[in-house]
Design a protein around this nucleic acid. Structure first.
Length: 279
DNA sequence: ATTAATGTTCAGAA
DNA sequence: TTTCTGAACATTAA
């Protein structure tokens, strides 16, 4: 489940090895699963990128961008189980794409590995980037949202705040795991309609958002029970050990120690919260 | 051995 | 316009 902290960790992991390198090839791997969604078709991609240099490796919400000196950019969406890898993959059977760089260093390949195969790799022109990833489509990045952003965005919807947090137009980058964690730290009931939050509560939400995401990045993301998420060198993250509520139903609330963590379902997704201290 | 659950995004319906 | 539902997919737990 790569969310913002996991994708940021991937970007930081591959950047030193990829930025400034010249591409000499891109290929789809021969994995036994269905081929990855690749746009445009691979021969077109190859023609447009071979011989180009990767100027920058950046993150837009949960997407990874490889920005080329031609103005084109690869936009990679890991979705559920996608990983960007420099080292060995968790298993060789789900490798999807290989980017090949001029063979002048120890690491000359970047891989996209994806067990479930929901991830996508696209090549956008500069003008397409603005159109398809611009603020109208993507919303402000959760890592840099201000308290003022939070106030205006929360006011605009009557959906439950937990459900609204998953809307990438409201806060780009938050997913199901961090939504529960952020609301618990902010002590806000996940079922509260977003537009009923007080100014004070929204300020707590903004602060909790920032501290949870920053701390999760510091721990290189969360590797859950299935062990899918890995950093660029195929190492697990740490933040699952810091989870306050996520997948901790039945455990005592770490804040109040008076109630047990509950699991409910909102918009067909699991939510974890403390019924005592989240109001 | 079926069946449910997992989570992100998008298309399409309400 | 806004909100909701289901599909895409692979793997595991029940």
């Amino acid at each position: 489940m790569p969310e913002l902290p996991e994708v940021e960790t991937m970007v930081r992991g591959i950047r030193p090895f990829v930025a400034g390198r010249e591409l000499i090839g891109v290929r789809k791997c021969r994995c036994p699963c269905r081929p990855i969604l690749f746009e445009p078709a691979l021969p077109t991609v190859v023609r447009r990128v071979v011989g180009r240099t990767v100027l920058a490796v950046t993150r837009r919400a949960k997407r990874i961008l490889l920005e080329l000196d031609s103005g084109d950019a690869f936009v990679i969406e890991p979705r559920m189980t996608g990983l960007m890898l420099l080292g060995d993959p968790p298993d060789a059977g789900h490798l999807r794409v290989e980017w090949q760089f001029a063979p002048d260093r120890e690491i000359n390949s970047l891989w996209f590995w994806d067990r479930r195969g929901l991830g996508t790799v696209r090549l956008y022109r500069a003008e397409e980037l603005i159109q398809r990833l611009g603020p109208d489509k993507l919303g402000p990045d959760a890592l840099v949202m201000t308290a003022h952003d939070w106030r205006s965005r929360c006011q605009a919807t009557s959906r439950a705040i937990k459900v609204a947090l998953l809307d990438q137009r409201l806060a780009a980058g938050i997913g199901n795991l961090y939504a529960s964690e952020i609301l618990h730290l902010a002590q806000v009931d996940p079922a509260r309609p977003a537009n009923t939050l007080t100014r004070r509560e929204i300020d707590r939400l903004a602060a909790a958002n920032r501290s949870v995401l920053a701390e999760a990045i510091r721990h290189e993301g969360s590797t859950l029970g299935d062990g899918t998420y890995r950093n660029a060198l195929n190492q697990a993250g740490d933040y699952q050990n810091c989870h306050r509520v996520y997948q901790r139903a039945g455990e005592l609330c770490p804040t109040c120690a008076r109630a047990k963590i509950c699991r409910i379902v909102q918009a067909q997704r699991a939510t974890f919260y403390c019924p005592h201290c989240q109001k």
